[in-house]
Nucleic acid binder design. Structure first.
Length: 423
RNA sequence: GGAGAGAUGGCAGAGCGGUUUAAUGCGGCGGUCUUGAAAACCGUUGAACCUUCACGGGUUCCGGGGGUUCGAAUCCCUCUCUCUCCGCCA
């Protein structure tokens, strides 16, 4: 959520920058400014009347103590009108505040100056490329054939147990999952991230804090009996650890990571995009999260991008890094890099990581602040990235490394899998 | 699931209608003393919002919401959460 004070002082800038995200903010901003002004007028008035009442109450107490009952009673009568006014003003204030909140929540985060102007995924800017596109023989199989051939993943069995999009990993397929999770967590620890194992169900406040609620309610599984949501990413519980917290400036940056399964309803998805491991309702992911000083958050974003690139290199996967254009960015992000690996048999790029700086968009919702010395608390910047999402990594490894004799494992994870080949 | 207890400032912990503008202790910060440190002593110690060019002034916050009252941390209602015991259970 954007800060109201910022909107008040920079309304033109907000409108211009939101246009990059193809969001026409003109009308909403005008409404916000007007409601905000009205709200402040109400509050000034209310504070004034409350102040009078407080003063009178004190006097009444003193008068009673001094035995001047009659004077006290007279003063009491005066308060009736004030109390009515207070009730009325409080109602107005609450309404104005709610109104303001409702409108402000509709505004996406402001894109950073470096965000390309485009509208569709084609307009994303390729900022980095690594590795050669694998030249596989015509007989090369897509991963959903390979997983069947080597009995690694049973998609039909998942349908029986839960439904489409809930694969059952078996044998070396399951072991590969576990190996990748451990590998990613170990690498993150080496890079200074503290491992967290968070709850995978979250409450409404947490969903609001990171921006999933209220807009994306339909994307999450909702456990209605207890009013909890299954996490779509570890970002939600790990970032919400710091909701309503004021951290010491010296403790920045805070670097956390965690492995969790992730659950997404993916309502409306269909076609070949959802084939095999390409899009699932449940998948495994290791997430990295940082909380950083506003002055340093963009350096941190680059550092995180480099970190994820390093992981992909170590897995010997060809990949490219995209800077997302205004039209393709998420609601909450100020700047996002997507990392895509090339999946040789499908002959397409698959997104395996998304690294974003949210600036104060999440921290303002969460009231996550930092404080140094005698300075006033300020909103911190939050960042996160996948490091990495497993299914598409697995898809690319299986497809790109297939040979006549079986599927070769990248060297880096052999110590974790305990096998070099799947055959 | 049953029974009971509780929710107060960074933490611990008083307060149970108007000397609370929240006692006291610990912690934190500053100082005195000291070659330095410790101890001791003194001072200081939150957040949000409104208003003001500024100095300052005002309002709100004792789990959330509502009520009683001129006045609520304190009384009433309600919700949520936590703890203890019992039951069940990985």
């Amino acid at each position: 959520m954007l800060e109201i004070a910022y909107i008040r002082q920079n309304s033109e800038d907000v409108i211009t920058r939101l246009a990059v995200k193809h969001f026409d903010a003109k009308a909403v901003i005008a409404e916000i400014l007007s409601v905000d002004e009205n709200k402040r007028a109400i509050q000034t008035k209310l504070d004034d009347v409350l102040s009078q009442l407080n003063k009178a109450s004190k006097e009444i107490g003193d008068l009673y103590k001094a035995g001047k009952k009659q004077e006290a009673d007279e003063l009491k009568n005066k308060t009736t009108a004030w109390k009515q006014e207070i009730t009325s003003l409080e109602g107005d204030l609450k309404k104005a505040d709610q109104d303001l909140q409702d409108k402000a929540v509709l505004l996406p985060n402001l894109p950073n100056k470096n965000v390309p102007k485009g509208k569709t995924p084609e307009d994303n800017e390729v900022v980095f490329k690594h590795g050669d596109i694998p030249q596989l023989p015509e007989s090369a199989l897509p991963h959903w054939e390979l997983t069947k051939k080597y009995d690694l993943i049973d998609f039909e069995l998942g349908v029986k147990i839960a439904g489409a999009g809930f694969p059952v990993y078996k044998g070396k397929g399951a072991k590969l999952q576990r190996a990748l999770i451990n590998y990613f967590l170990d690498k993150a620890a080496e890079a200074g991230y503290m491992e967290i194992e968070p709850p995978i169900l979250i409450n409404k406040d947490s969903g609001f804090g990171t921006g999933q609620l209220p807009d994306k309610e339909g994307q999450m599984y909702h456990v209605t009996l207890d009013d909890l949501y299954m996490i779509p990413t570890a970002e939600v519980p790990i970032t919400n650890i710091y909701r309503d917290v004021i951290v010491d400036e010296e403790s920045l940056p805070i670097k956390n990571c965690g492995y969790t399964p992730c659950f997404r309803r993916e309502a409306g998805s269909y076609g070949k995009d959802v084939r095999g491991l390409n899009r699932l309702h449940q998948f495994d992911k290791v997430e990295i999260v940082q909380i950083q000083h506003p002055d340093k958050s963009y350096a941190t974003l680059e550092e995180m991008r480099e970190y994820v690139a390093g992981l992909l290199k170590s897995l010997e996967l060809p990949f490219r890094t995209l800077r997302l254009c205004g039209g393709d960015m998420s609601f909450a992000s100020a700047l996002t890099y997507d990392m895509e690996v090339y999946s040789g048999a499908q002959k397409r790029w698959l997104e395996v990581s998304s690294v974003s700086n949210f600036e104060t968009f999440q921290s303002n919702r969460m009231k996550l602040r930092f404080k140094g010395g005698k300075d006033k608390p300020r909103l911190a910047h939050t960042l996160n990235g996948s490091a990495l999402a497993l299914p598409r990594i697995v898809a690319a490894i299986l497809e790109n490394n297939q040979t006549e004799k079986g599927i070769r494992m990248p060297k880096a994870i052999v110590p974790y899998t305990g096998f070099e080949m799947i055959s």
